[in-house]
C-alpha cells in the first residue's frame, strides 16, 4: 500500500468570536468540523462546494495559518504540530488573490529569489530564479518588472513560481482561476497538469469551476457547511454523485452544453 502524503483525521478548526458584551469569554465558532481524508503522493485533489462552506479555512489549516481546535494532520506519516508547521515549507499555499499576495515594491526576480534557498551566491540565485520562471512558462525579461506591470495570469504564475522555489511537496491553490479570464484559466490548467507530471507535485485545488476540476483532479471532495460530504475519484463523483448537493452542483454547471 502506498503511504499517503497527507492524512487528515477529524480536523476541526475555526475562529474565535466574542458574542455580546466586550470582555466576555471568547467563544469558538468552528468553520470546519470532523474532516478526514488522505492524499497519495502525486495526486491532485480538488475541493468544491458552496461559498462560505469552509474550503479556504481548510486550506489555511493545512498550510499552518489556522490552528486546528482538534484533529490530527499527518504529513508523510509525521504529525504536524505547531512547531513543525511553517518550518519545513513542504506545504505551500497560493492565495486566492495573487495580486495582493505579491509585494508591489519588489520586482519579480526579487520576489522569487526571496523564496529560494538562503545560502546561494548571487549568480546561483539568479540561475534559480530563471529556472523557476521558465518552469511556469514566463519569459526571462519579466525579472525586472513589478507586479503592477503584469497581467492577472502572469501574477498567478509568479506566485506559483515563488511557491515552487521553496521546493514544496504539496502545493495548495485557493481558487487560482476565479479572477482569470477563460484563456488564462485554460493555460493555467495546462501548466498545472504539466508541473504535476514533471515535478511530481501533489496538488490541492480549491475551485468553483467544475470544468477545470474535471480536467485536472484525480479526486474530488465536496465541502458544505464545514463538513466533507463526499470524497471520491473524479470519474466516480461526476458519474454517480451520492448526495443531493453534488447532484445539484453538477446539474447547475451544465457540463454538456
Amino acid at each position: 500500500m502506498v503511504e499517503s502524503l497527507l492524512s487528515v483525521e477529524n480536523l476541526t478548526a475555526g475562529y474565535p468570536c466574542t458574542p455580546g458584551l466586550i470582555g466576555k469569554r471568547q467563544n469558538y465558532r468552528p468553520v470546519i468540523s470532523g474532516i478526514s481524508f488522505a492524499i497519495n503522493p502525486g495526486e491532485t485533489v480538488a475541493f468544491v462546494g458552496p461559498s462560505g462552506g469552509g474550503k479556504t479555512s481548510l486550506a489555511m489549516a493545512l498550510a499552518g495559518f489556522l490552528k486546528p481546535e482538534s484533529g490530527i494532520i499527518r504529513f508523510r506519516g509525521e504529525k504536524l504540530d505547531d512547531q513543525a508547521r511553517g518550518a519545513p515549507r513542504k506545504i505551500q499555499l497560493i492565495f486566492q488573490d495573487a495580486g495582493g499576495a505579491l509585494n508591489p515594491h519588489l520586482n519579480i526576480g526579487a520576489a522569487i529569489a526571496e523564496a529560494c534557498a538562503k545560502n546561494l551566491s548571487k549568480r546561483e540565485c539568479l540561475d534559480q530564479v530563471m529556472h523557476f520562471l521558465q518552469m511556469v512558462e514566463l519569459s526571462a525579461e519579466l525579472i525586472e518588472r513589478y507586479p503592477a506591470q503584469l497581467s492577472g495570469g502572469q501574477k498567478q504564475r509568479v506566485c506559483i513560481a515563488r511557491a515552487l522555489a521553496a521546493k514544496p511537496e504539496l502545493l495548495i491553490l485557493d481558487e487560482p482561476f476565479s479572477a482569470q479570464d477563460l484563456l488564462i484559466q485554460v493555460q493555467l490548467t495546462d501548466l498545472l497538469r504539466h508541473l504535476k507530471s514533471t515535478q511530481k507535485l501533489t496538488l490541492i485545488l480549491i475551485a468553483h469551476d467544475l470544468l477545470t476540476v474535471r480536467s485536472l483532479a484525480d479526486r474530488v471532495g465536496i465541502i458544505a457547511r464545514g463538513h466533507l460530504i463526499e470524497y471520491e475519484p473524479t470519474a466516480v463523483l461526476f458519474s454517480q454523485p451520492r448526495t443531493a448537493l453534488t447532484r445539484a452542483l453538477l446539474e447547475a454547471a451544465e457540463l454538456d452544453v
Binding site: P50, H208, L249, A252, A253
Partner: peptide
C-alpha cells in the same frame, strides 16, 4: 459569477 459556485451562478 466569478466568486460564485455553480448553483449560485445558475440561479
Amino acid at each position: 459569477s466569478t466568486a460564485l459556485d455553480a448553483i449560485a451562478r445558475r440561479d
